[in-house]
Amino acid sequence: MHTIANLGLLFIGAALINNILLTRFIALCSFIGISNDWQTSVGMSLSVIFVMMMASTATWVVWNYLLLPLGVGEFLYIPAFILIIAALVQFVEMYLRKYSPMLYRAMGIYLPLITTNCAVLAAATEVAKPGFFKMAIEYNYTFGEGLVYTLGVAAGYGFALLCFAAMRERLDIAPVPESLKGNPMSFITAGLLSLAYVGLAGWFGL
């Protein structure tokens, strides 16, 4: 029972209270770049959840069974993790293209973009090398907890992205001063949205 409550807290903390987009500024490029279309946002969110789970699994295994025992983690973790993510994304793309054209059509175009999505690198590194990110409580994740945490981060990313996409669709028809039109106004809207997330800070002591 205790562990289930703990896992729930871990999930909520990662998804809402320490939301990766609006309270950490990670992965903003995709947040601004993709959110002008609802359909695209849905595809991107799903792809991020998918890739992030796989990336965290891979980095956790590599860190705990390869880098840490060899004692080279401190200076090899950046190249190692980013290479894992890049390779993983490439494989997933090839696999999907061959075996699941449906899924490939839905998320194919977002997959290459995810390589440079900082959210994936940040979450995967946090799971493998805790304290790197000072996101939630400093914590040595077991494998299961790492997965729950990643799911929380990815779900929080998707939720914030979809919220923002919905707001931007409304913004297109709103009367906005000439020089603020487009991106500047989107940033101001994002600021207001993140104000709502600031209100959640400190819940459950997370």
């Binding site: 603020l180 500047p184 106004m185 940033f187 600021g191 993140s194 997330y197 600031v198």
Partner: peptide
């Protein structure tokens, strides 16, 4: 305090971007 928080950054950057576009 809002200037040091996350919303301040977003809003300020939006304004800065409008300026640089001009």
């Amino acid at each position: 305090g809002i200037l040091m928080l996350f919303p301040g950054a977003f809003i300020l950057f939006g304004l800065l971007q409008a300026l640089s576009r001009k």
